[in-house]
Every structure is written in C-alpha cells, then in structure tokens.
Design a binder for these strands. Structure first.
Lengths: 124, 124
DNA sequence: TCCATATTTCGATATTCTTTGAAATATGGA
DNA sequence: TCCATATTTCAAAGAATATCGAAATATGGA
C-alpha cells in the first residue's frame, strides 16, 4: 500500500466522531447500516454524518449501496486489513524480533489458522 | 486502550511527514536516532522536525533520551502494539470469522519477509 | 568563561478540517 | 402528479494544524 493511501486511511480514522462511525459499522458487519440509523444511533446531524461518511468512503474504508430510500454503508474489511498490514510492516520492518510479541496482542490471530476457525477459544 | 488515546495516535501517524519520521525510527530500532540525524535524513528544518517529534511524543508513540548534546528518539513499540491491538479489536470485534484472513496479511507473524518496506512495489 | 553545536520554543501566517443551516436530489407511495 | 422520507450538496464560519524565521535553552569543549 502506498503511504499516501495509508495516510488517507489513518486520517479518516483519526477523529473521534468518525472512529465512532467506523466502529459502529464494524459491529454491524457485512450487512452494514443505513445512514439514517447511524445518525440516530450516534446522535449526529444527517448532513454532518454525510460528511463523515464521505471521508471514510474516500479513504476506501467503507462502501455504500442503495436500498430503496436508504443508503447502506458497510466496512470494506479488505481495506482495513491492508491498513493493518501496512502498519504491521512498518512496525516489524526488518526486525521481526521486536515485533514477535505482537502476535500475542492480536486476539483475532489466536486460534484462527489461515482458513478454518477450528473453534474460538473464549478468551479475550 | 481508550478511544481518545487511539485517536491521538492515529492522528500522529496521519500525516506524511510524521509517518516518515515514525518509519525511519522503526527502522532505527530500539537504539533510536538523534533529532539532527532525522532532520538531515528527511531533509526537514530542525524546528519543523521538533514539532513533528512533539506530536509523536505526545501521542506516546516515541520516547526521547538525551545523549550529550543530542536528543535521541526511539519508537515505543509497546504503544504501537497497543494501537495495532485496538484496531484489530475493532476490526474483529465479536466477528473473528471476518478477520480470520488477517493473519495472512501480517508478515511478521510468520516467516520473515526478506525486504524492508521502504520500497514501493506495485499493488499487492 | 566563551563559543559552537544541538535542539526547542515562540509568534505569526497559511492551510486544512469540521460543522452547520439551507437548499437540492432521489425514491417510494397515495 | 404530489408528498413525505432519506440523504447529499453547497457555502460559510470557526477551529485546529503545519511550517517558518527568529530567539532561547542546554551541553561539551577550549
């Protein structure tokens, strides 16, 4: 990933209100959530939310689809993965020994082999 | 980690110049690098760099120690790990199945990729 | 002590962001 | 078609950021 893309994505997440939106969408999962629902849930004006969604969208972190009168936003998990990959690369770059303990901090890497999530061990 | 801390750290990294500084310090490793060296390496004015280092420092992402006339900055890898953990949590939150492929994107969790991240090779 | 080096602080300016009210666009239903 | 709902666009105001020149502080050595 180009650093300019990384900066764009980091910037998009680097604001309380937008981070809230993003987290809400993460919780919503692939089905996403309508703009209006998000606005009500976070108690933010529709036009303000629209601007926030635009920033996240321009950063590629979320996508949108229309459903009737509503517009449904959802996280682009691939983009988030890319970003995490970039940051991890930066953190480990050439010095895996420094970053080795990182795996322990990543709850989602635990017990999840590449394909089959054999069984999630409850801990978190 | 509190979201306000996360926002602070994301903001600190969300700018080209500061991301460059951070990446340089990551490469430098635990020994760190003197402010002056960084300024020369990145071709930025000393006072400008000072402001950038302050932001990264306030975010807790880097630390400083004096060595003679120089001040040596180095990455606080724990802080970076925390941030990555927070983001990963956000990404996986309650839905590890979504994030399962994430492990594959994390080069540092498996073998060591042979090269530094500095070089921008095309898409991946 | 005096001086050169290394870095930071201060103050100002230029730029970029964020939010808001008002108006516009798109959709579905009566 | 007309109307209500859902969302976005626009323009402006206010807030926050980034960078720069000049001056200040800290350190080591002659």
């Amino acid at each position: 990933m180009e650093t300019t893309t990384a900066v764009k994505r980091l910037s998009a997440l680097a604001q309380e209100a937008r981070l809230d939106v993003f987290r809400l969408l993460v919780k919503a999962g692939p089905e996403g959530r309508a703009a209006g629902e998000i606005a009500r849930a976070l108690d933010v004006a529709p036009n303000t939310l629209s601007a926030q969604l635009l920033v996240l969208s321009n950063a590629g972190l979320i996508g949108a689809r229309r459903d009737g009168r509503s517009i449904i936003y959802s996280v682009r998990f691939d983009a988030m993965r890319e970003l995490l990959g970039f940051l991890t690369q930066d953190c480990c770059g050439g010095r895996p020994e420094i970053c080795a303990p990182l795996a322990a901090a990543k709850s989602c890497n635990r017990g999840v082999p590449d394909e089959a999530p054999a069984r999630a061990r409850g801990r978190r």
